[in-house]
């Protein structure tokens, strides 16, 4: 049963990646990205990383994909189809990505796992919260600051100036 669930989420991820790589329509690629992100959240649950799965759905699938689709809707000329032209580089890009893929697969195939059991059993949300405020407090405060700067910067950059 657990293998069937793993196989299902892997298949969904592969379908999503296949659509992103092969489509010419940017909006379809954004929808396929949402599929990839949600199925990755399912894989994180299988890897016993609960809070990461929830944050992935909340921020990635519920935030980044919407931002991207809004970006597509606001940057198109008239009513033409949202095409991309990939005639120049696609063979070179394919060769390069295949080379990187084979290098990574070769390195990963040498990996041996002695024991892959998960020894985390407790309330993960509580432990991560405590760890944010004790072990990783500097990173936590810096991330909050970066978020504030990004929020102010993005809203300033994107506002319409008065003589446009």
């Amino acid at each position: 049963m657990s293998e069937f669930v793993q196989f299902f989420f892997f298949l969904l991820t592969l379908i999503g990646v296949g659509v992103i790589v092969s489509t010419k329509n940017v909006v379809h690629a954004a929808y396929a990205l949402a599929l990839v992100l949600v199925s990755l959240a399912g894989i994180y649950v299988l890897l016993n990383a609960e809070l990461l799965a929830i944050v992935q759905i909340l921020l990635y699938a519920g935030g980044v994909v919407i931002l991207l689709v809004f970006g597509v809707m606001m940057t198109r000329r008239g009513s033409e189809d949202v095409l991309v032209s990939e005639s120049k580089n696609s063979i070179l890009a394919l060769a390069l990505s295949l080379a990187i893929f084979s290098l990574l697969v070769y390195v990963f195939s040498e990996a041996t796992f002695e024991s892959f059991e998960s020894t985390i059993t407790s309330d993960q949300v509580r432990e991560i919260g405590v760890s944010f405020l004790t072990n990783h407090i500097v990173a936590f405060e810096l991330i909050a600051f970066v978020l504030l700067v990004a929020l102010v910067g993005a809203s300033y950059l994107a506002k319409m100036s008065s003589n446009d």
Binding site: A34, E50, L51, I54, V55, I57, L58, A61, V65, R126
Partner: peptide, 17 residues
Amino acid sequence: VSGGLFLMLAIISLDVL
């Protein structure tokens, strides 16, 4: 799930898609 309420809020935000 250890974060039940949080999970509910996250999944509800998918209807925007």
